[in-house]
Nucleic acid binder design. Sequence first.
DNA 1: CTAATAATCTAATGAATATTAGAATAATGT
DNA 2: ACATTATTCTAATATTCATTAGATTATTAG
Lengths: 231, 231
Amino acid sequence: MKPATQKDQLFEQVARIGKATSSPKRLELLELLAQSEKSVDQLAQEAGIGIKLASAHLKVLRESHLVKTRKEGKFVLYRLSGQDVANLWVTMRELAENHLAELTLALKELSSKRDKLTTYDRQNLLQQAIRGEIIVLDVRPSDEYLNGHLPFARSIPLAELEQRIEELPKDFPIVAYCRGPFCLMSATAQDVLKTKGYSVQILSDGICEWQAAGMPLHPHHAKPHRAEIAQ
Amino acid sequence: MKPATQKDQLFEQVARIGKATSSPKRLELLELLAQSEKSVDQLAQEAGIGIKLASAHLKVLRESHLVKTRKEGKFVLYRLSGQDVANLWVTMRELAENHLAELTLALKELSSKRDKLTTYDRQNLLQQAIRGEIIVLDVRPSDEYLNGHLPFARSIPLAELEQRIEELPKDFPIVAYCRGPFCLMSATAQDVLKTKGYSVQILSDGICEWQAAGMPLHPHHAKPHRAEIAQ
DNA sequence: CTAATAATCTAATGAATATTAGAATAATGT
DNA sequence: ACATTATTCTAATATTCATTAGATTATTAG
């Protein structure tokens, strides 16, 4: 029926990116993958969905070339196609924050302590971390920390926080961060630490937001990708 | 059925942006709106769709807060909610170019003369324009030019190009641009001018791309928005 | 080889979307 | 007031999408 001009085809291609990002669960998967490479059932568990559904969503993401896969033994490991995909996620989230009042409200309820950071604040935080005046605490799972983390951050995954709490000195203010503004782990960590008498602030940035702002990460410990699955 | 956690709701909100950008025609409308404020039937005509369908798509864009409306007489004028919406479009298009091979191929077919510009190239172009060594030619319709254009660009809409062709001196190389990499107007202008013996290059940037790269525009001639339609 | 695990594919459901036609609303000009 | 123009709303269609269950492929362990 339709002639489908060349122009239409171009917009059609870009719309594939829009389609891929039109599902909340797919966005959640993208945010998880921005932390580190993960297997399908790891993703399914962390996103709270069934494996079959996760696989279906991941297929859509793969077909829109936002994620790539490789196989390691029985496992298929997914990762983002590039840093620019993480940047797209940050761009979309920030746009939503700016224009969707409901989202701003929801975020305020989530945590009134989280403020938007300017480049200056991030530089300042980094300088304080370098000078050892504060403790930057990464409460994400270990593998995500190992894949890349804020400079001078130390890792205590949220699940281990109560047992390992004595590792943290009380002399310095703590700045805790997790996967990003939508992640609740740092807020939970703050609650845990505050009841033990620590002084804790939350950094709403995850590594995507930090990196999108042009700030440096500590280098990845990523293994080389050996066997790439085609397409 | 679902409890719908707070986290889910947050991703849900961002997914609204994805849904709004998941239709090729809506993206085309966004690109048109990035040029200037337009009425519904102007948008429908330029996008090559019926008014009813345009209105429906615009409703979706309005509900996702990507565009705003105001009323002037009988007309409802649509515009982007902010510069960040234009930046999202550029981000999505560039991501698609980087990761979708089909898109890259289609663009190459479209015009092999178009190259990606670096910040340096753009600065260079601007300097040449300032020194008057080149003519920067805006071939978009007048109202889009008046709404904002590249520094030192002169306006000859494509429709008037053949009649007004003697306005252009042959002593200087011409750099033509239009709405952006997906727009064919500058390519058509190049064909017209080349047959008349002009030396013409195409700048693939439209004003979105130029501005997203941090380059300055010549100030808008926009009228103040008087009557805003609620929501 | 067989059993077990990880992931995908197929098929089927209901829900959401795109598109069009027809009616309704709102502002303008006579 | 009336006819005209611009736009939106309502309703109806065909299409596409999300989700789940069941069968299937690929890999490892024994």
